[in-house]
Design a protein around this nucleic acid. Structure first.
Lengths: 225, 225
DNA sequence: AGGCGCTGGCAATTAGATTCTCATTTTGGG
DNA sequence: CCCAAAATGAGAATCTAATTGCCAGCGCCT
């Protein structure tokens, strides 16, 4: 399905481009629309049901496609999930970057990153952002996927990890923080921030909750700030 | 492995009661032996395969029971999983307590707790403990179960949480630590320590790993020690 | 026009969990 | 020791959801 003469053109930037041949532009357009519909349908289901447990059938029906079609584009359910996760992380990275940019001091930048990331991973606060998706279900499956395919998840989350390491390096360089290994520090921060919703859920009705601020304070001092 | 009979009198754990309460005292002994066999078989499978993904069939065959029998004692697979988790946590609490007792200073006690808990939740180190089970698969479970039934998991982990809060309260009382809310602090510590194996797995081959020591330092400073 | 890949619609297959049925065995009471 | 009720064992049947297979149109490219 891939033609040699297509490869000499501009460098493709994402999986979307590489996935479909350009010589068959009409087919490609159709295919992309199709894939997009599947993704949209899946997102809708997640938002509506507040859970990541939909069936392929649901997705197919909602998107008015056929099972046959689904398996034409995705090797299986996991592939769909990864695609959703990738898409979602793309959005969040963009959003977080916007949130970090206006700050100039290394520590404030790091703080902005932390707080925003926390918001992205947890349940929607009272202040719903634009037409953003309900991200909790996605966090849930990132957890499940991390258990059965950690490398894949790591790859998908790489953009976030990279940004975090950069911010940490900057902070260390500016002497605002001391950390022997920023990558290790990044792991600790990610864990604390991205999955605090899990512990909050476990805490349940006891009323104790770890807020974005709490998480930030904990990380900051934890790294000796 | 045949240490079941003496449980008849002492206070049985939650799942044990639930599982056996249906049949009354006479059959009880037999029933308990049966339940125990199922649990042993499940533990064996987990240890051998290093994963928590066995089928009920496997368990039934290994324990020389029948499906009928399995469902007589457990309402479903989740019940079995919870039973295993409960059992495993019982062991760990015991072990952690032994590890904490010899220490007298509040901070050292807290440290002992943290380090030991970390060892319990992660992959087996080079120093295998007694006939201890491979606990990583169980940690994986606990994570999955925490996603679909958080309250239940919270209940099962309560003994650990309680111990931690006590240690924290003691440390705060001794002025060795300042924390506005020890329960919140407990959540953060649990999260950092119990699930660092997940992040380590995500870090994968990059070589960066969070050790028990790292986790402890992070928590200690994070809480302002 | 003709061929071929893309598609829709569906039946078939697979894997596991959970239930059901029936023949046997065990238990408790007389 | 004998019987009715409860407990079991074996294995078939049912169910859910994912994944594949099959076949007949349809539209695009040459």
């Amino acid at each position: 399905m891939e033609r040699v003469d297509d490869l000499q053109d501009e460098k493709a930037s994402g999986w979307r481009q590489r996935a479909v041949s350009r010589s068959l532009s009409a087919v490609r357009t159709r295919a992309e629309r199709r894939v997009q519909r599947l993704l949209d349908a899946a997102f809708e289901l997640i938002d509506e049901r507040g859970t990541s447990e939909f069936t392929i059938q649901d997705v197919v029906e909602r998107s008015k496609q056929s099972l046959r079609g689904f398996y034409q584009y995705f090797d299986g359910k996991d592939e769909l999930l990864f695609a959703l996760l990738e898409e979602s992380i793309r959005e969040s990275v963009e959003d977080i970057r916007e949130s970090v940019e206006p700050e100039s001091e290394p520590l404030k930048r790091l703080r902005a990153f932390t707080i925003r990331l926390h918001e992205w991973c947890g349940p929607l606060g009272t202040q719903q952002k634009r037409g953003a998706h309900n991200r909790l279900p996605l966090s849930e499956f990132s957890l499940q996927l991390a258990i059965r395919d950690p490398e894949r998840v790591a790859a998908v989350m790489a953009p976030i990890s990279r940004m975090l390491v950069e911010l940490l390096d900057a902070a260390v360089a500016a002497d605002a923080l001391r950390a022997t290994d920023t990558r290790r520090a990044a792991l600790l921060i990610q864990q604390t921030v991205m999955y605090s919703w899990l512990m909050n859920r476990l805490a349940g009705k006891t009323g104790v909750q770890v807020t974005a601020e709490d998480a930030w304070e904990f990380c900051l001092h934890g790294l000796g700030g």
